[in-house]
Design a protein around this nucleic acid. Structure first.
Lengths: 232, 232
DNA sequence: GGTAATAAGTGATTAGATCACTTGATATGT
DNA sequence: ACATATCAAGTGATCTAATCACTTATTACC
């Protein structure tokens, strides 16, 4: 489940519980079996079961009410994004993910250009400098540095909620997707385009920053789309 | 912590752990004390500690590596949005939250107008009808119905990731914020503005739908801002 | 010098019992 | 008859203490 450690009992339990809820046709607000019954059905002890329940609770999939019962949460119908224990997003969703970023990030670039302050600008430059040093090195490192540029731009926009959202989206570029990106995308071209965006932000040109960010993300999506579904 | 149940031991533990990590100056990748030491320090038993750890793991705050140790995760620096156990967003953040929605939702309204299909349109109408029936009833119910309109519009846009993001943002309009909204905001006016947005979507007028959604959200934010910080 | 066994440290899980809370039924009083 | 108080069953929360499974760095051997 985790990328490094072997699946553990409570990892499997978490998935089985999700399956129980989803395939069992349970809706938000429904009450689930008691802890005693669940631990029997899944043949695990109470503490182990509870670990799985706490994870589901933390993601909003269920709700534990002391003395009352276990209830299906509102988030059960959704993806539940930033959860390292169910972070599986399939390749096809990569295109959709980029679609989301195309909507969100360009306005953030514009906002960043508007309120660009000296020290923040320095941070952004630093990030790109670091990327520049990796231009001839490991692709993985360059990829990471490039991701940092998007993070830093989002932060400059000055809205912590949006910053958080972008961070989440970038985080979902997990192992599988990162692999796809590293195979198909051109990290050098990314770097060049990032430079162009930085220029616009530095020049305090919101419209240009927004356009360049949008063009950049659309470009990436187009490349990925064509590789995944060759137009032939 | 939870909205209905009294704070539990492991609830408090989760917060103390976060405090330990944050105020302890730990950075992502740092290794934390072992489970044995932590359970001693916090004076709780292993299973209880583990429940807290699983929650933090589920949000990406920490990482548990079997046989190796507990490590600070990448998400520790962020807010970690859809987590019912740390869903506390303060009143001041409400304005920022609306700022995020102002960036994201208008383009979604435009997208919805572009691809408006018959049955989806019917769903949207149904949501508004339901809201209409609550016009003279409980404020809480009308509020819920109004939130559903935003959810449904986001779904119509046809990008599941964006839909998920909007759902998360709306979910963060938790108890505290809901209270503020119910006190200050005018749910009847909301309903009228929602009707106007629906018209634009129905007429397949993306630009108008986008403008009206933006105006609507800006209006709400302005009201809240003035109430929280009276301009005097 | 390199490779394999090893031991210490760490997380994962078990077992069954007890405590704390919620909820609906039952009894009680008016 | 109704409202209120009491109670009991069901449920989640926590404890205790021991064992299992995995990782890692050291050590010994070749």
């Amino acid at each position: 489940m985790s990328e490094v450690t072997r699946p553990t009992l409570s990892d499997a339990l978490t998935e089985r519980m999700l399956e129980l809820i989803r395939k069992g046709g349970h809706r938000p607000g429904d009450r689930l079996p008691s802890t005693r019954e669940l631990s029997q059905r899944f043949a695990v002890t109470t503490p182990t079961l509870r670990e799985a329940l706490r994870r589901l609770e933390a993601t909003g999939a269920i709700e534990l009410r002391h003395g009352s019962g276990i209830y299906v949460g509102a988030a059960i119908e959704r993806l539940v994004l930033p959860n390292p224990n169910m972070r599986e997003v399939h390749a096809a969703q990569l295109v959709e993910l980029l679609g989301a970023r195309i909507v969100i990030e360009p306005p953030l670039a514009a906002m960043a250009a508007q309120r660009a302050e000296g020290d923040e600008l320095a941070v952004l430059k630093g990030v790109l400098d670091k990327a520049g040093k990796h231009l001839r090195g490991e692709d993985a490192e360059l990829h990471e540095a490039n991701m940092s540029f998007h993070r830093a731009t989002a932060r400059m926009a000055g809205n912590s909620v949006l910053h958080e959202v972008v961070d989440s989206l970038l985080l979902v570029h997990g192992p599988e997707q990162r692999e796809i990106l590293q195979i198909f995308d051109d990290r050098r071209r990314d770097y060049e385009e990032h430079l162009a965006i930085l220029e616009a932000i530095e020049a305090r040109a919101p419209a240009e920053a927004e356009d360049r960010m949008r063009a950049h993300l659309v470009e990436v999506r187009t490349v990925i789309e064509h590789r995944l579904n060759p137009p032939g």
